[in-house]
């Protein structure tokens, strides 16, 4: 069975010129996303991890069609977004929805929850009567674990976790196929984070959603994702099924991220790799392997050319020239 992945990017690039063509010439460019080719299989969750500034949100925005990519293609259900007709685009805008990090700033404080949830419905289902819209809003609210009668309340009457549920309801009310969630649990307390993660997991299974789940929290990614992509300076350096990535990392950067992630279970038992320095500026990335300035295993050859994201086994790709390394897993064997 070879089903077409719902999302496919091919050599996707998103560059930002630093100061726009002062003399019409080419100024310095920030290569926020620099050649990303990934597939997200239908009904699966792809977790995207990497340090701050690695390009996760920029890639997410390019996938959502919120920015015009500098190069490369983004295909949704076989439709190339750059060549889609306006009616195709309108349908794509319904089928692809987002949930944001900060539920408060993304909700209009002057709109009741009923109004907030009706806006996307009015746009995408104009035929729906006012009372049907209200029913749908109340149903959706219960689906995300809030009492239906809360639809007449306003955002300030809700806690952070509840507002995040409303953000999820707003994304789901138009029955999308795909959800991009960017740092959606990062601002939440641990006990509430668990409630929201469980809700995401349940809805994803019940509604057969495909998801891009962006976070810097490796334990969260390990819990919710079927596949994980690790980004460094605008590139995907490793891609694997979740279990494979955590138990058999093949890129030194992944190993370093796993070893730095704090865990109450194995703090003293794991090998600890403390990387030197910060992530380099995307304006002036190192030649060859971009990770080499911080990589504990770098050798002379690493500076020559950018390592390709190579397939090491089905469902596992990594961009490192060294196959002789045995890297430490996060999991207890």
């Amino acid at each position: 069975m070879n089903e077409l992945p719902l999302i496919q990017t091919a050599d996707l690039k998103q560059h930002f010129p630093l100061h726009k063509g002062l003399f019409g010439g080419q100024g310095p460019v920030i290569r926020a996303v620099d050649g990303v080719s990934i597939d997200i299989p239908r009904r699966s969750v792809l977790g995207l991890v990497g340090e701050s500034g690695s390009g996760k949100s920029t890639l997410g925005r390019a996938i959502m069609g919120l920015s015009r990519p500098t190069a490369g293609t983004m295909t949704f259900d076989g439709i190339d977004m750059a060549r889609a007709s306006s009616s195709e685009l309108k349908s794509l805008r319904r089928r692809m929805q987002m949930v944001f990090q900060d539920p408060f700033s993304s909700l209009n404080p002057r709109m009741s929850i009923a109004e907030t949830l009706s806006v996307p419905l009015r746009f995408h289902n104009p035929g729906l009567s006012r009372s049907r819209r209200k029913d749908r809003a109340a149903e959706m609210l219960e689906r995300v674990g809030l009492p239906g009668q809360y639809i007449s309340r306003f955002p300030h009457e809700f806690s952070g976790g509840q507002r995040q549920r409303i953000g999820i309801a707003r994304a789901l009310i138009v029955q999308p196929d795909f959800i991009m969630a960017d740092e959606v649990v990062s601002a939440l307390d641990v006990s509430v984070q668990a409630q929201v993660l469980n809700l995401f997991g349940r809805l994803q299974r019940d509604l057969e959603l495909t998801m891009l789940f962006i976070t810097h929290d490796l334990a969260v990614v390990g819990h919710i994702s079927d596949f994980v992509a690790v980004m460094y300076l605008g590139r995907v350096v490793e891609f694997a099924s979740t279990r494979e990535l955590f138990s058999n990392p093949r890129h030194p950067y992944t190993e370093a991220l796993l070893s730095a992630a704090p865990s109450p279970k194995s703090a003293n038992r794991r090998k600890r790799i403390v990387l030197k320095g910060d992530i380099p500026s995307p304006l002036n990335p190192p030649s060859g392997c971009q990770f080499r300035t911080r990589c504990p295993y770098a050798v002379e050859d690493c500076s020559h050319e950018v390592p390709k994201l190579r397939e090491l086994s089905p469902e596992h790709k990594a961009a490192c020239i060294r196959d002789d390394l045995s890297l430490a897993p996060a999991t207890q064997q």
Binding site: S191, Q193, A219, L245, F246, A330, T331
Partner: peptide, 10 residues
């Protein structure tokens, strides 16, 4: 309530 790194992907 915190997901465990050790059982990721299981």
């Amino acid at each position: 309530a915190v997901p465990e790194l050790e059982t990721a992907g299981l």
